[in-house]
Amino acid sequence: MDKLDRVFRALADAGRRTLLDQLRADNGQTLTELCEHLDMSRQAVTKHLRLLEDAGLVVVVWRGREKLHYLNPVPIHEMAERWIGKFERHRLRALSDLKKRLEGKGDDRSD
């Protein structure tokens, strides 16, 4: 499978997006920590994490015997760059800032 296909496939699932949200809120969590916040079985989380790792969206760092999971947004950036042109980035950012302000969101995440 193409690298871009893996990124799209990994993102095409609400549960996996929630996992990424969890890491965005608190980067570097263990499997156990991730399971505490999610309404999913440990097996399901493990499976989702593997897909996210394959897509490069989650990076694993070992600290002793602990496996820590990190959100790696670089592939999402690379994907966006494919369709965002040179002069569009600033306009898109301005639009997104405006949307956030109007919707009263302090955080730059939108679901």
Binding site: N27, G28, G56, V59, V61, R63, L68, Y70, N72, V74
Partner: peptide, 13 residues
Amino acid sequence: MTAATKPKFVYVT
């Protein structure tokens, strides 16, 4: 990285 801390951001390309 010490045992007590964990990195805040890890980026891979």
